[in-house]
Write a protein that binds this DNA or RNA. Structure first.
Length: 715
DNA sequence: GTGCGAGTATGA
DNA sequence: CATACTCGCACC
């Protein structure tokens, strides 16, 4: 490739060619056909988040395809970028620069991904650049070479048939798990016939051969029969591993690829290119897989869309569910939201008729679900000393003891930090303030206990009951609970699964399994019983989502338990009868209906859409003044926010700037304004947010305002 | 981000 | 009046 020739010419002309109106830069001839390349720059600046025209030197003509990675000279520096299209004429009268070089001719920014990224950026008032950062994996030069036309020709010659064309047979991997639902089979036939149905599935399958990965695999298989591809997004790598093994059994290991950052750049980029070239038609992965360049997409699936891991951690904080929603519309693909529970957002889609609800009939539910009983969360008065020691209520204690004769027993405990109340390490008496008798809690930063009512610090605490000097969190982590249960059930194996030591699967033999929500190991034959502790702590969280979130965690754990017909039993400890009732009746759809109704009445998301703006007081005022809010927007604030718990060094962006109580911080700190608006107005408002942000960025004046649209952990 | 021109401050 | 410097903004 004689590429040096032209780029050197450019350099020279830049050094010597001062006259602006003289001949175009460089003496390299532009390509004869479509000499213009529109380039999206790899720059985080909002006002540069648009296309710029460059000349394509004839030398680059073949490589400079739409979607290729390039380097271009921009404002005195060499910036990476992508060609979005080739054009005959420039969009500008500015003097065009030639492309610096074509880094790789692989068309990694496909037209579909670009369109999707634009839609996502528009919806979240963010930049296309920020979305593409997630959508397109970094290049691995070695992998690029595997996908040159020559290399591919060689491979094809070697007789390596295209796996993509292999039509999956009805593998002997068991019965159709969707046959349990009234509309399940019809959903599959529509997929197989090339249609694009949309459904919200309330899945019954928590474990065993008819589990949710099997249900999803079946939908994927039907889509393949229609000759189309599919993409499946799951919250984490544990779920990915489960899905992967079932897909391997049902459609074959060669029929799909994993797409997850966990795998490292090289395999990730290879999988990406395999999809892009149509060698493989199915992609499964974590949230960034929502953008997988599956050719001729027929189905997009998201498992457990309410899991907070589906929300991107960086701007514009897009949610995989909404990415797939947009994608299914843009590419006319089917959409499946599947979960043991039902998110309020999913309910909205069902309620509006956009998607069909797929749920089992009551009789089927009764045949599959365990028996659920509830008990109060207070156990301090338990007379049974062993039960008190295990800090579990008697009913739960009994269930565990009984269940252990038949198999593993799951104990779900809240994550540490859920309930900040402290108690005495020795006698379990709640720790009280000596000043006002308020409960003691841990101040978020220095670790010194302080009263949650009067704020008085209590560095030298000692117990008023027994004189002990050590404090414990009243909601113990999985590790400590496991330890205590081990003592309470002497000769029983205790397995702990939480945080950094997650167990994916455990055998069918009796054991106590202590796990935090989301970390529950799967048992091939199901748990004999489950005990759901800390319900009140989870429900009392200061969050709009506390109720639906807790219920989701209960359903997830309870789905791993054997049916009532096999003596499967779930004991839930919480006092909120409404939330508990939905679990007792195993009715996630009604729970979601009720929740959505509540949000409608309150005018809160997802019944409406909203944006959170944060910044300094002055910055916010100026931003909102420029924004020019239309009628119908409810603006709340600006209100002071507590300072971020994380010191500003870590991430100056809109990290978690909430605080459990608003007493710290305020003056001179950050402020927040919330905007609530109807769906119909959303496009106009996000567009205004975007352009105001871009203008502010171009002026580079005043304090920046950070925008977060439909954030998941804001309210 | 960087480079540049306009506009303004500053000193011989 | 020449030079230094800041500011705003365009960058293809």
């Amino acid at each position: 490739m004689p590429a040096d020739d032209s780029s050197e010419a450019v350099q020279l002309s830049l050094l010597h060619g001062f006259t602006p109106s003289a001949k175009p830069a460089g003496k390299a001839q532009p390509a004869s056909a479509l000499p213009i390349a529109r380039v999206l720059l790899d720059s985080p600046l909002p006002h540069l988040d648009r296309l710029f025209d460059y000349l394509v030197p004839a030398d680059f003509d073949a490589d400079a395809v739409a979607g290729a990675r390039v380097k271009v000279r921009f404002g005195g520096q060499e910036l990476p970028g992508f060609i979005t299209e080739r054009a005959a004429e420039a969009d500008t009268t500015a003097r065009l620069m030639p492309l610096g070089k074509v880094v790789s001719p692989q068309p990694v920014l496909s037209p579909q991904i670009l369109r999707l990224a634009e839609a996502v950026a528009a919806r979240y008032a963010g930049t296309v650049h920020d979305v593409l950062r997630v959508a397109i994996p970094p290049r691995a030069a070695r992998v690029d070479k595997e996908f040159t036309p020559e290399a591919r020709a060689a491979e094809a010659g070697a007789g390596e048939g295209a796996a993509a064309d292999a039509v999956p047979g009805p593998e002997g991997a068991g019965a159709n798990p969707l046959a349990r639902y009234p509309h399940g089979p019809r959903f599959l036939t529509h997929l197989a016939a090339g249609h694009s149905p949309r459904a919200v599935l309330s899945s019954l399958g928590g474990y065993g051969p008819q589990d949710w990965p099997a249900e999803i695999a079946e939908a994927v298989r039907s889509t393949l029969i229609s000759g189309r591809g599919a993409v499946v997004v799951v919250p984490d790598n544990k779920d990915l591993a489960r899905l992967q093994s079932v897909l391997t059994a049902r459609i074959g290991a060669d029929a799909f690829v994993r797409l997850t950052a966990e795998d490292g750049p090289t395999p990730r980029y290879r999988s990406f290119l395999q999809l892009l070239h149509g060698d493989v038609r199915v992609a499964v992965g974590t949230r960034s897989a929502a953008y997988a360049p599956v050719q001729d997409l027929g189905l997009a699936v998201i498992w457990d869309d309410a899991d907070e891991l589906h929300a991107e951690q960086r701007a514009p904080y897009q949610h995989a569910r909404d990415v797939l929603l947009l994608r299914s519309e843009l590419e006319n693909a089917a959409l499946l939201l599947a979960s043991h529970s039902r998110s309020t957002e999913a309910q909205r889609l069902v309620a509006s008729g956009w998607a069909a609800g797929i749920a089992a009939e009551r009789s089927t539910v009764r045949a599959h679900a365990p028996r659920v009983v509830s008990t109060t969360d207070s156990f301090s008065m338990e007379r049974d000393p062993l039960a008190a020691r295990a800090r579990i209520p008697h009913a739960a204690w009994k269930a565990a003891q009984d269940g252990l004769t038949r198999g593993p027993v799951l104990v779900q405990v809240a994550r540490t930090g859920f309930s900040p109340a402290l108690s005495c390490q020795e006698c379990r008496e709640p720790a009280r303030c000596r000043n006002c008798s308020g409960p003691l809690g841990l101040a978020s930063r220095n670790g010194i206990p302080a009263c949650r009512w009067c704020g008085r610090p209590e560095p030298m605490w000692h117990c008023g009951n027994c004189g002990g000097t050590h404090l414990r969190g009243s909601t113990a982590g999985a590790g400590r609970t496991a330890e205590e249960l081990g003592r309470a059930f002497p000769s029983t194996t205790v397995i702990s699964s939480a945080g950094d030591h997650i167990r994916t699967e455990i055998p069918d033999t009796p054991a106590l399994v202590v796990a935090t929500p989301g970390a529950e190991p799967v048992v091939p034959g199901g748990y004999a019983a489950a005990i759901l502790l800390d319900g009140n702590a989870m429900l009392s969280r200061e969050s709009l989502r506390a109720g639906e979130d807790t219920l989701r965690r209960w359903f997830t754990a309870a789905s791993l338990v054997r049916p009532a017909t096999e003596k499967g039993l779930v004991v839930v400890t919480a006092d909120d009868s409404a939330t508990v009732g939905h679990l007792l009746r195993w009715d996630p759809a009604s729970a979601a209906e009720r929740e959505l109704e509540l949000r409608r009445e309150l005018g809160l998301p997802p019944a409406v859409r909203y944006a959170e703006l944060t910044g300094s007081r002055e910055g916010l005022d100026a931003f909102i003044a420029r924004l020019g809010l239309p009628e119908g927007v409810r603006a709340v604030g600006p209100a002071p926010l507590a300072p971020p718990v994380v010191p500003p060094s870590a991430n100056a962006q809109t990290r978690d700037v909430r605080s459990p109580d608003g007493q710290l911080g305020g003056a001179g700190g950050r402020y927040r304004t919330l905007l609530f608006f109807p769906y119909g107005q959303a496009p106009a408002i996000t567009a205004a947010l975007r352009s105001t942000k871009a203008a502010a960025s171009a002026r580079r004046t005043g304090d920046p305002v950070y925008i977060r649209v439909d954030g998941t952990d804001v309210l």
